[in-house]
Nucleic acid binder design. Structure first.
Lengths: 148, 148
DNA sequence: TTCCATGCAAAGTGTTTGCAATAAT
DNA sequence: ATTATTGCAAACACTTTGCATGGAA
């Protein structure tokens, strides 16, 4: 269930320059079911290290993503969240009401693939699957947008 | 291959108030493999109707999405594209190099589902699948981000 | 004639960047 | 001592909004 080494340990192993700010961000991102937005990471980090700046949080998150230690999850329009669980292959279940996210390991995922013509000559590196629906709290069904 | 009725026809059927601006946006969005950003829609619309404003393009796109006649495709960081092909179920193949998008109908998609515990009590309304890779032009492989 | 859509420009988001001061190795 | 990181604030890209004008039905 848990990662073999903490994010921080993995960063040390990479000989990444550890600063109080980077360490704090890494600590905030510790866990298997964490999906925080940059602002949330900033808020949480600030509680432990009041002088940290938002720019540093963004810089750090971008570096973690570039290193492949954290992945970005696009939950919806303009909503980017950061997921430190990059070691266990998984996908996401997103609530269209409140934005809550769960990691999931769907059935049938192994059969997914693009056949010849549909590959369009691409080399496929990854497959992102996002299940969208309503969580128990936002229950009923979509807020029935009125239209036309 | 083609939609039974054009987007514009569908809008008329909905008794949507047709203005030159809305008609132009609908015309720009005509087709099965169209994935334009708001800016691109604006640029194309402007060629036909120079006095159209970007705000109107955004308003119109948002209304089309709310009506369910166009869907938003989140290709990557901050890139929202609009896809008028909402009648034929399909997914997307995105090039991580140039951002090119293709509609695809992957094999094995029907077996995809969340079993009990993984459903977390959600009612699942849709499943988005995005294949990411490199198109023939951006060929090789990822630009190998340097790190640590 | 009534009501709604438009255009404009200003205001909002969320994110990135330049640069001098500062800290990690 | 060297070199990279930080914080700040300004700059950015994208999107939304308020309001008076103009156009669709």
């Amino acid at each position: 269930m848990s990662q073999s080494a903490s994010l921080l340990d993995r960063l040390r192993a990479r000989q990444w320059r550890i600063t109080p700010q980077r360490r704090t961000v890494a600590e905030v991102l510790h866990g298997d079911h964490v999906h925080l937005s940059a602002d949330e990471v900033f808020a949480a980090a600030r509680r432990r290290l009041p002088e940290i700046s938002l720019a540093t949080v963004y810089n750090t998150l971008n570096e973690l993503v570039a290193m492949g230690e954290v992945s970005e999850v696009r939950a919806g329009a303009g909503v980017t969240r950061y997921d430190p669980n990059v070691h266990i292959r998984h996908h996401h279940l997103v609530c269209t009401g409140c934005g809550a996210i769960f990691d999931v390991r769907p059935e049938g995922i192994t059969g997914l693939r693009l056949t010849g013509p549909d590959r369009h000559g691409y080399s496929v590196d990854e497959i992102d699957v996002v299940f969208r629906g309503r969580c128990p709290s936002c229950a009923p069904s979509p807020p029935a947008r009125s239209l036309a």
